[in-house]
Design a protein around this nucleic acid. Structure first.
Length: 824
RNA sequence: GCGGGUAUGGCGGAAUUGGCAGACGCGCCGGACUUAGAAUCCGGUGUCUCACGACGUGAAGGUUCAAGUCCUUUUACCCGCACCA
């Protein structure tokens, strides 16, 4: 009887026989199947991991049986905050807790029985991995893609530390819920913005969920418009603004600069100095919560300076206001209160002038009074024509955008410009548990990268990692103090560590060459193994990990280390398994399902079968206790049926009865569906079809007189069926395969495909509709053409009642689908 | 506010892409076997109706011989972005 001990038996055999190993000679048939690696935080493998790894293992085994040389590695994204926070709470060192967790999780992964290639394992917190993460950092540094600058970062005043963006939940610290403020710190950045356009363009060719592509598209946020230069009156300063609505240029009545901009102090006049400084200070105190508040009232102050309109040469006031973002565009906008809602609100509050420059075509033609009263719907209109705009009057908005920019260009006051919302990637973390940034600061030589031959810069074990606002590594003199690789003088090390997303941005390249101690990876080999053919993981990584990994891949390509431009050719996001109560599983809600208990009770195959059958894979849904017991019952029933068939003596029946033919038809047509479903990762419908085959086999064996059964045929089908179920229930199938006296392993056999000759039937049943409602069924020869089908359908006795006082006006015949008779 | 998605029996979910709605499973009802339960097996199970039949895929319209599927409007929930000039 199938249970956990059968799991263990075959797991041992698979390991001994290296069923998961990759045969390099077979590279032409390689299939790189990758699941997002797991994060060994305080917990064990949870249902989410299983839902990711179990079904995808079924897919991988299917591909293997389809003749592919499958590479399915697994590893651990082992650096990062959760381990460190756990350490802070318990006092257990992150290295120790992480290693212990990895050990537990490896055991669990093996108990899952997935075909993971553990020879290819990577663990990002180990020296032989993070050495190359550091190497990668130096590569970016060499290429000018890693740079240091002062940045305004998230700061938690209670934890006394910086926070990553993803740790800020609605303006609060994820750990202590204090309000997050901003602080200026000098940080390392990766210049991902250099690749903005390519990252956007590259999406087109990817087989990814549209939603994920959309998220990346929005994240990159391309926007095309113009740059316009405003000179500052009575100075030699000038302000560049970015706008997508340069057609409204003649409606500019003031200019606004972000309060954080450096230029502000040069713009501020003596008289305004106090108000401006006061305002800047006030902005710094605004919490994230307030900043994100909806419909927040706009505030700002006048700098005392004036900008000169590039075309009219009119003077307009320059203000500072925090509704202008320092980090987008040029940090400076031209305000057109008549045609922009935000500018309107601001202008109204501070009594700034309004000037309408776009009006409806009809109003212009009819010479209507076009004095403005701001109307949200009309203000945004791009279908109007220009008014009050001098030479540009009567241009449509589209024409005006081009013509005005062209004109500005000719007087050197502007140009076409594309901007992106994407910002450079901040990779510094004031944290202990990460890869040290391989940089040395020398008083004489400045920033000096650690020579590559000196890598890795080891993360010291013995460090006080509790946070107090300084990087923990700064508190280790042995780590900090070093000699300059250039001049040999005294120098200090960078004490920040790298964001863990850096570690996970390139792991897909390391798996196939994980033991390479000479190079980050072997280019020739990697170009054969990459890209990943199927990547599966949660949708929460849509904008971060998946974008970073694409960026780093392009950097590696431009450095000549690979030809691959996109790491993940095809991507699938599995859904989320919720608690039985329909809520997200969480300890506080007490609705967490622990896989281990179920594996113990039912075995791995039952658990993964339930996960595959109970939900649409990309949707997920709430856990059901009944669901898993019913799956256990199903497998036991299947076992009884297969055992019974196995016990039959094989007879010498050579001809097929109608029942035999029916069984062959059912089996082959469902087999066809299973193959299709698996290619599309539609596990639930594939299993439904497996159950239908089970039911058909069961029904067939119900005649208890063995002698009238075609047991030869039955056994042949059973053997094929065991192959069919193998990817779904690997342990159980291997057990049955062995019971049927077949040679180990079922996974070295070929996955069955339907035999077309059993799918051909002499006759086919068609539904006949009268005026769109099914009224009766007809049986027609498969070979019958539309005319013949129509004849059979129309001449049916059952049609008569519907023809009383009526006649047939039309007959639609869809071959092998349906007949619809329209009567009037 | 902008963008994307979802909505089908008591429940999880199907539906060859416009062609017999509810596959498969759970649950429930009835029956067999049992002293009894568990397990197993057989039959039934969208709603209304005694029935003929009618109605039925969040709601309202529309296109079509035919709509869960296409179009318009609308509601609820989920996700992403959020003063992006």
């Amino acid at each position: 009887m199938y249970n956990k001990s059968i799991d263990e038996k075959w797991q041992k055999e698979w390991e001994n026989n290296k069923i998961a190993s990759f045969n390099k000679d077979n590279i032409d048939k390689k299939y790189y199947c990758l699941e997002m690696f797991s994060y060994p935080s305080g917990a064990k493998l949870h249902v989410g991991h299983w839902y990711n790894y179990g079904p995808v293992d079924t897919f991988a085994r299917f591909k293997k049986m389809k003749g592919f040389e499958v590479f399915q590695p697994m590893g651990f994204d082992a650096f990062g905050l959760p381990a460190e926070n756990y350490a802070i709470k318990t006092g257990i060192h992150p290295y120790d807790s992480t290693m212990k967790n990895i050990e537990t999780m490896e055991k669990q992964l093996k108990a899952m029985g997935a075909m993971f290639n553990f020879d290819a394992e990577v663990i990002t917190c180990k020296e032989d991995y993070y050495k190359w993460t550091q190497w990668l950092f130096l590569l970016l540094y060499e290429k000018g893609l890693a740079y240091r600058k002062k940045a305004n970062v998230n700061w938690c005043p209670s934890c006394n530390t910086v926070l990553a963006n993803e740790q800020v939940i609605n303006g609060e610290c994820e750990r202590c819920s204090s309000q997050v403020t901003k602080k200026d710190l000098t940080q390392w950045f990766f210049k991902i913005t250099d690749y903005a356009e390519e990252l956007l363009e590259g999406l087109k060719e990817l087989d990814w969920p549209e939603k994920t592509k959309k998220i990346q598209t929005n994240w990159i946020g391309k926007s095309t418009g113009s740059i316009v230069t405003f000179d500052v009156a009575d100075t030699d300063l000038s302000l560049d603004v970015f706008t997508t609505r340069v057609d409204t240029l003649m409606g500019v009545t003031y200019v606004v600069v972000a309060p954080e901009s450096d230029i502000v102090k040069n713009l501020t006049t003596k008289e305004q100095e106090n108000v401006v400084n006061e305002y800047i200070e006030k902005c710094k105190l605004v919490t994230e919560i307030d900043r994100l508040a909806e419909n927040r009232e706009k505030t700002g102050v006048f700098t005392g300076s004036y900008a000169i309109h590039p075309i009219t040469k009119e003077k307009v006031q320059i203000w500072i206001a925090d509704y202008v973002l320092a980090t987008y565009g040029t940090g400076c906008v031209m305000a057109v209160p008549a045609h922009d809602e935000r500018d309107f609100a601001f202008a109204k509050k501070y009594n700034l002038p309004l000037k309408q420059v776009i009006a409806k075509k009809e109003d212009v033609r009819d010479n209507k009074n076009i004095d403005v009263v701001y109307n949200k719907n009309e203000a945004y209109t791009e279908k109007g024509v220009l008014v009050n705009s001098g030479d540009f009057n009567n241009f449509t908005t589209d024409e005006a955008k081009t013509e005005i920019t062209k004109y500005l260009k000719s007087i050197q006051k502007g140009d076409f410009k594309t901007t992106y919302r994407l910002r450079d990637w901040l990779v510094s973390r004031q944290r202990y548990w990460g890869a040290p940034i391989p940089i040395i600061y020398c008083d004489k030589c400045g920033i000096v990268p650690v020579p590559k031959e000196d890598l890795p810069v080891k993360l010291p074990y013995d460090v006080e990692f509790k946070p107090d606002g300084k990087s923990p590594l700064a508190k280790s003199p042995e780590f900090v103090n070093t000699t300059c690789p250039h001049c040999g003088g005294h120098a200090t090390r960078e004490t920040d560590t790298l964001d863990t997303f850096v570690c996970s941005s390139w792991y897909q390249f390391r798996y196939p060459d994980n033991k390479n101690s000479e190079k980050i990876f072997d280019t020739e080999w990697i170009d054969k193994m990459l890209p990943v053919d199927k990547y599966v993981g949660g949708p929460e990584h849509a904008a971060m990990h998946l974008l970073y990994a694409r960026f780093i891949t392009k950097v590696l390509r431009d450095a000549g280390l690979t030809k691959v431009g996109e790491p993940f050719k095809s991507l699938v996001h599995q859904g989320l398994i919720l608690g039985p109560d329909g809520n997200k599983m969480s300890k506080s809600k007490g609705n967490v399902i622990s896989p281990d208990d179920y594996i113990e009770k039912y075995g791995s195959d039952v658990f993964r079968m339930y996960l595959m059958f109970g939900f649409s894979y990309i949707e997920g849904g709430p856990w059901s206790e009944e669901g898993i017991t019913s799956m256990s019952k199903y497998i036991l029933r299947l076992e009884r049926i297969l055992d019974k068939i196995n016990s039959y003596k094989e007879n010498e029946n050579t001809s097929y009865s109608d029942e035999d033919k029916e069984l062959l038809f059912t089996f082959n047509s469902l087999l066809k569906g299973i193959n299709n479903d698996l290619e599309l990762m539609q596990f639930n419908t594939a299993i439904a079809k497996i159950m239908e085959i089970t039911n058909a086999l069961y029904k067939y064996t119900q005649k208890d007189d063995e002698s009238i059964l075609n047991t030869k045929l039955l056994k042949e089908i059973a053997v094929l069926f065991i192959k069919v179920i193998a990817p779904f229930m690997p342990h159980f199938a291997e057990e049955m395969w062995s019971k049927y006296g077949k040679e180990f392993s079922v996974f070295n056999t070929t996955y069955p495909v339907e035999d077309e000759k059993y799918l051909v039937k002499d006759t086919v049943e068609l539904a006949v509709q009268v005026n769109g409602v099914v009224r009766y069924k007809i049986v027609v020869p498969t070979s019958a053409d539309e005319k013949e089908i129509e004849e059979i359908a129309v001449n049916n006795e059952k049609l008569k009642p519907y023809l009383e006082n009526k006649s047939i006006s039309k007959v639609i015949v869809i071959k092998s689908r349906i007949v619809n008779i329209v009567v009037k």
